[in-house]
Write a protein that binds this DNA or RNA. Structure first.
Lengths: 206, 206
DNA sequence: AATATTGGAGAGTACAACTATCCAATCACA
DNA sequence: TGTGATTGGATAGTTGTACTCTCCAATATT
């Protein structure tokens, strides 16, 4: 399969495929001569993944590259690999401001304590939680403790389900977790919006 | 309060405040002369909201403007107002392809039927669900029915909580729903990631 | 009176994500 | 075996977004 066939299979312009090759998101084909390389199904799959990440998930090319690199060769340490993946995903976390020595993530800490969950400021999602809570607060819609508990408990069911299905082998676990985080998040958001609609329409009808 | 004080209060450069004024995200101050206008607390609040939407939530200036306009004057019809707001929020939905007459959102339809929820193709979130499911599928991680049910039921608890707290007056309801959708979504995502971490660490310790 | 600041408009900048153009080396077919 | 099409690779150009800078005449401030 040459580059034009690959581009056609993925539904993309050849120029865009070349761009992804140059940017290192797509692995090179097998060169058979100076002006010929052959691509296979793995390239088609990869292009689909790239478009899913940069399109629906909304990642930048740079973020997508980070995610793809982590999947391609996850480090020895599953934990730190996942940590790096989470850092590459939105919502972006503002770096912890405030005077040095102070608690960098006071809102996130309080939230996690209220939920009875571990608080480890090194984990990227803690900074993301802090930024999100701060944004909601400064926009005039602070998250009440009550709401936090409601959200936290429901979300925990989802997370528990995710973990139950996690593959045993480390390599597969990374791919499952990283892609599952990135790809299923938009689904969750859409489901919440649709549930609002469904519940509202039921109430109206009653 | 003049423009430089406003900018300082919001922690932004004056040029950026001027930019938001020009772009219509921020309402003009009360002009007292040809080169003087006074701004008040409402402007500071608005700037905070703008930064929350364009920063943490990740909206473009264009999308933020749409959301802000809907909050400023919601139409008579609560439903269509919310629909327009949802359309302005990510994840972006690809427009329904396929041959005309065919079901435009087959995955979303199947999902909603499995969940026992209403399926109305006019609602923007249906297109978003379809796009998200399609992205996950083409990236090689299709959402199983089982997972869909697990997610859908947990998310429903959250949506039910949201609706219970919805203000009675239409104007407030729009603001609550639109901002609650946009601002609390990042919180939900961060909470899921943290719950993964928490549950994983509990299992390891056991 | 001297200096600084303001609102407003226009131009300029920086970056991201493509997209287009070239070119010499093959290829594919007549 | 010629001849037009295609390829990989490099370089340059385009488009869009979100600011940021520069001016300027009209005020404010001191």
């Amino acid at each position: 399969m040459r580059i034009s066939a690959l581009a056609a299979a993925a539904g993309l312009p050849v120029a865009t495929v070349k761009f992804y090759l140059r940017e290192g998101l797509l692995h090179a084909g097998l060169a058979s001569s100076a002006t010929q390389a052959s691509y296979d199904a793995s390239h088609v799959r990869r292009l689909r993944l790239i478009r899913a990440l940069t399109g629906t998930v909304g990642l930048s090319v740079q973020q997508a590259r980070t995610i793809l690199e982590l999947i391609d060769d996850p480090g020895d340490d599953l934990y730190s690999t996942l940590g790096r993946a989470v850092s590459a995903l939105p919502p972006a976390a503002a770096d912890a401001g405030g005077e040095p020595g102070a608690d960098p993530y006071p809102r996130a800490r309080a939230a996690l304590e209220a939920l009875g969950q571990v608080y480890d400021p090194r984990f990227a999602a803690v900074a993301q939680l802090e930024s999100s809570l701060e944004a909601a607060e400064s926009a005039g819609l602070p998250l009440s403790d009550d709401r936090l508990l409601a959200y936290g408990n429901a979300i925990r069911e989802i997370a528990a389900y995710d973990l139950e299905r996690m593959p045993r082998s480390p390599r597969e676990a990374v791919e499952y977790t990283v892609l599952g985080t990135a790809l299923y998040e938009p689904v969750l958001l859409a489901l919440r919006r649709l549930a609002h609609q469904d519940i509202a329409s039921r109430r109206t009808r009653d």
